[in-house]
Design a protein around this nucleic acid. Sequence first.
DNA 1: CTATTCTTGTAACTCATTGTAACACGGTCG
DNA 2: CGACCGTGTTACAATGAGTTACAAGAATAG
Lengths: 243, 243
Amino acid sequence: MNFQPEKLEHLLIVDDDREIRDLMARYFKRHGYRVTAVEDGREMKRALDNWSIDLIVLDLMLPGEDGLTLCRDLRARSKIPVIMLTAMGEEMDRIVGLEVGADDYLPKPCNPRELLARIRAVLRRTHEPSWLSGDQRMTVLRFEGWELDTRRRELKAPDGQIMDMSIGELELLSVLARNAQRVMTRDQILDCLKGRWMQPFERSVDMQISRLRKKMEPDATSPTMIKTVRNGGYVFTPSVTVE
Amino acid sequence: MNFQPEKLEHLLIVDDDREIRDLMARYFKRHGYRVTAVEDGREMKRALDNWSIDLIVLDLMLPGEDGLTLCRDLRARSKIPVIMLTAMGEEMDRIVGLEVGADDYLPKPCNPRELLARIRAVLRRTHEPSWLSGDQRMTVLRFEGWELDTRRRELKAPDGQIMDMSIGELELLSVLARNAQRVMTRDQILDCLKGRWMQPFERSVDMQISRLRKKMEPDATSPTMIKTVRNGGYVFTPSVTVE
DNA sequence: CTATTCTTGTAACTCATTGTAACACGGTCG
DNA sequence: CGACCGTGTTACAATGAGTTACAAGAATAG
């Protein structure tokens, strides 16, 4: 449900080829989008801090940090949809691209019209309130008095105490929080953590869940926030989650 | 009507080539999905009427009604995500496919692994957190002082105590409460629980009912809320039910 | 560069849930 | 009154989940 006033969707293009960048920017502007075009990962990050971006078109080959890495990092802390472009038409790259969390993939050179169609398809599915896709806001997740700062990697308890967490616990909690109220299978959880976490087999999720609960749930026998669904997976059920 | 999150995601494959169909079905089943495979549009519609489908893999070339038309019709009345497959590698077809409302497109023959990755990607962005779009009303059921929160999976007794319940008991109670004052056969109950519960044979309902009553009915010999109808099934008869 | 500590995958064990069978109870119909 | 049928209940086994323990690997300190 979207209560926002009509607004232009803001695309961020990341590509080192200036010509292509400008071409795409003009094309999408003509089709009613707000567009920002930058040339590398550093500028991308700056843009994300300054704007509320709705979708990123990301070239795989970039000077400095490469597209795959950028995409993975991005996915770790926000749900902003990403469409990857690459000159290498290898099948493996496509798969890796998708597994790293991209929402779609296109080989270069690509027809702007097709890219536009895919952008629309992705946006149609992605439309979510800005507090999810928002840059700054996504780094801090709040629920029932808890505060998870994914950038500083800190978890603050309701009593203000800052807890010591391992990367794994933190990532898992962030995935759960981002999918609150939804039953997630172990498989889905692993899927979300792919790249941020070695991906072994399903029982390690149980383990990590157990470790998380030990830190967060006062009464281990009846968890309040992280519930188990037999044969299903886990649900994160804080009373309120926002921002 | 079903408002609860599905445990297994249910894929519907529509392809006229029996071999491919079976191959895909097996592959996805192995990866934890529930799969139904049919060969044309007619069967597809029947399947949609009988099951709660989460995603459709749709071949463009079909006997009878063609994939594009089916997809457009589908999109007109539901949001079920669709991934289109086609043997013709024409670029135009890809674009048309996306414009017609498909969520993704893949040329045939396609690598099952890639298809799986795309299915996951689409499902990931399709399943929005249910508290955003979902019907808030149905999540908390109230009756005679009891409160059943299906989302948080908790049952609160009239005295305010939160009871410890297994998922099975909870699901059963939720089905009963949603059909209050109506006699439900064991068959119907099992039907409602399909997918959310192992679906064995009818006596397990009796068992679960018994376990439920033990928790909810103060006097086991004369149940107040869950009544038995001989040769009929069970009725849930709270004095007042509010959603 | 090595030692120590922290993290996390894996296995083994325990506990909880639930399907299934067996039996008990009670009403119904001949 | 007695055999039968449907339901309630007890008991048990199978499966899944929680947890403890440990070892391998990564990170950190010295």
